[in-house]
């Protein structure tokens, strides 16, 4: 029995590793073809992909709907910014440390949220998403209020430039985000296929049966929150490194954007999370491409991406709840 499960673990890890390496290769190939603007956009895709994965794990896999992922991203962002500015740490140290701090925030949130369900959880996390950024204004001296804390990815180290040539700024953003996205992808795909993933799915599908099978489900629910918050914190840390960490960088609409991406792509699948992220990030550009031929006022073009992504969200939920990646999902169950 033990031998079988060890073998399983190895083969799961191997599949996830191959998947991750293919992902990295594909991003590098595509990134090399892009111009600077689209490289920046691709970096945003990678960063938000990590955040969308946090929604996939929490909502899609374990069935808990949170609208507060943006607040956890803010925790990651502020931790990184404070560590980099006050302690002069390199981002390669500061970002992993802020993953720990968002995991702790997730632990606290999980303890409070483990007893909440459905709309109660959604509403409470929404209030949290609104309340957390106001802390930045409450403790001005530390968080600098609305002005925020400026941080960025800086410049590549000398050895990197010697090896691969001098990358552009957007290209460097992409290269910084890529290893973190790869680690997140590896972890998420491992969790989904492992015993833990099965346990979380069973919590989602039937709590009574799960607890009768000997699973301590409130502990597992808290555990989901910790893992999901770590993903959100990582995403938020990298998101802030685009230039600024402040309340305006992590609005409530960011939480909704992550949810939209996860649902559009397919809320139960990792592939779906990536497809959804690509859709929400590139949608404004695609709309612009179509609209060049029409004379539209700025007012219309400003709100069109939000209108279309919200319409897509409703249509997905009503017509095809499994999302873009859903067809594959049905085969796997």
């Amino acid at each position: 029995m033990r031998a079988v499960s060890n073998h399983n673990k190895k083969s799961i890890a191997r599949t996830s590793l191959i998947r991750t390496l293919l992902f990295v290769a594909a991003i590098l190939l595509v990134g090399a073809q892009f111009d600077a603007y689209n490289q920046g956009q691709l970096a945003v895709v990678l960063i938000l992909f990590i955040g969308v994965l946090s929604v996939t794990l929490l909502t899609g896999i374990s069935g808990q709907l949170s609208l507060g992922q943006g607040a956890l991203m803010a925790v990651g962002g502020y931790s990184t910014a404070l560590l980099m500015i006050n302690y002069k740490l390199s981002l390669w140290v500061a970002v992993p440390l802020s993953v720990i701090s968002s995991a702790i925030a997730g632990l606290l949130l999980g303890i409070a949220a483990a007893r909440l369900r459905g709309p109660y959880l959604a509403g409470t996390t929404l209030v949290i998403a609104l309340a957390i950024p106001t802390i930045a204004n409450r403790f001005m001296s530390v968080f600098k209020g609305d002005e925020g804390l400026p941080v960025d990815v800086g410049y590549p180290p000398q050895w990197f430039s010697n090896l691969f040539g001098e990358p552009g700024y957007e290209q460097w953003q992409l290269y910084v985000a890529l290893p973190f996205a790869a680690i997140a992808l590896f972890f998420a795909s491992n969790i989904l296929k492992s015993r833990t993933g099965r346990m979380w799915r069973s919590i989602r599908d039937n709590e009574t049966a799960t607890s009768l099978s000997g699973v301590n489900f409130s502990r597992q629910k808290i555990y989901v929150f910790v893992i999901s918050s770590s993903f959100a914190g990582l995403s938020g840390a990298l998101y802030g490194l685009r230039g600024l960490v402040g309340p305006s960088v992590y609005p409530v609409s960011l939480s909704l954007l992550l949810l939209t991406a996860a649902v559009l792509g397919g809320i139960r699948s990792i592939t779906g999370a990536f497809i959804g992220t690509v859709i929400v990030v590139f949608l404004p550009d695609w709309i612009d491409l179509v609209l060049v031929n029409f004379e539209l006022s700025e007012q219309v073009s400003n709100y069109l991406p939000a209108l279309i992504s919200s319409l897509l969200l409703i249509l997905t939920v009503v017509i095809n709840p499994a999302g873009v990646a859903g067809t594959r999902l049905h085969k796997h169950k």
Partner: peptide
């Protein structure tokens, strides 16, 4: 997707957020 109780509670909330987005836009 709606077969579990937790998702039956979550999906209408997601739909209402979509409606909110459409109305605001």
């Amino acid at each position: 997707l709606l077969s579990s109780e937790s998702m039956r509670a979550a999906v209408p909330v997601i739909a209402s957020l979509g409606i909110l987005g459409v109305l605001q836009a």
